[in-house]
């Protein structure tokens, strides 16, 4: 399957204020909590680039912003939720996916995005990643992979390449890294893509596609952490990492994910592209169909189980009630 055949070119846009035409403003700004800027990220960090692509992807697929929620874990990427002007949740380390699972299942009409880093999603949260993919919970997971723990000062991660230096591997890393796309694919994700922060157009399109999929979609974004990975491993600054991505990335849409390993530290190609795009019933679809079969008329189909705010407000007699 190639990028051209995945039908990603949907362009219903959220109406932008007319003022944009007169005085061109960064179209991403309205997705940000401007009262929280400046952000905490370092110069040259790739996380901001990914947020830019995400905002444009949301714009492109026309989701109503009141129905879009973002859940982050802990870490530099974990701060993304706090900068997006959406219903946004900054959860505990590694647990963004199970929080998002509860959020989505309790109100299936929400579009729920998990936005976090490689350490958060693949180390401490690795178990939740594979199980949410297995259950095919309708979530989009955006994983910014910068090969290290940024927030805590550059420790080895399950994505750190062999030989790379981290504060906890001062003599070089001796553990094989995960290929996160292969992991998500094997666990059952219906959509899996990998791009780098150099590939902003492709990344934006893939996030758009992921947001449109029903089921568990996974987008890996390879990103520079110049401060803690780049500096220690002689990659150089953010720009040098972008150059590395540009020179070594090879687009391999539709390739089997087991063939997408790469070694960012060494040499050789870095496979990027839309790897997986398939359909299988999402968790709640399966639940409703299964229970209807098992219980017949007794089954009360599962939908929105949340409290009705108007009814609750009417019945709620005030603070002492």
């Amino acid at each position: 399957m190639s990028a051209q055949t995945t039908g990603r070119e949907t362009t219903t846009r959220n109406p932008a204020p007319a003022a944009d035409c007169a005085a061109p403003e960064n179209p991403v700004l309205r997705y940000l909590r401007q009262d929280r800027l400046p952000h905490i990220w370092c110069a040259g960090c790739g996380i901001g680039t990914s947020v830019n692509c995400f905002a444009r992807a949301v714009d492109a697929c026309g989701i109503h912003l009141d129905q879009l929620a973002v859940v982050s874990g802990i870490g530099c990427t974990g701060r993304v939720a706090g900068y997006l002007k959406l219903d946004s949740f900054h959860t505990t380390h590694g647990r963004a996916i199970p929080f998002a699972t509860g959020l989505k299942l309790a109100n299936p009409s929400l579009k729920v995005v998990v936005y976090s880093g490689d350490g958060d999603l693949a180390a401490i949260g690795g178990n939740h990643l594979i199980h949410a993919a297995r259950r095919n919970v309708d979530l989009t997971v955006i994983c910014v992979n910068n090969f290290t723990y940024g927030m805590t000062g550059g420790q080895v991660a399950p994505t750190t390449p062999l030989q790379a230096v981290a504060t906890t591997t001062p003599y070089g890393n001796l553990e094989e890294p995960f290929n996160l796309c292969h992991l998500a694919d094997s666990a059952g994700a219906v959509y899996v893509a990998r791009w780098t922060t150099y590939h902003v157009r492709q990344l934006q399109k893939s996030i758009t596609r992921a947001l449109q999929k029903r089921g568990f979609s996974f987008v890996e974004v390879l990103a520079p952490c110049p401060t803690l990975y780049g500096r220690r491993n002689r990659v150089g600054d953010g720009l040098a990492m972008q150059r590395l991505f540009k020179e070594r990335a090879v687009v391999k849409n539709g390739v089997a994910t087991r063939e997408t390993n790469f070694d960012i530290y060494g040499h050789g190609p870095i496979p990027v592209g839309d790897f997986i795009d398939r359909d299988r019933p999402a968790f709640l679809e399966r639940y409703n169909a299964h229970m209807a079969r098992a219980l017949g008329d007794q089954f009360v189909p599962y939908g929105d189980i949340t409290v009705d705010e108007k009814a609750e407000a009417d019945r709620f007699a005030g603070p002492e009630g």
Partner: peptide, 8 residues
Amino acid sequence: QGAVWAGA
């Protein structure tokens, strides 16, 4: 807790 913040 995710479910609670969705309203359940």
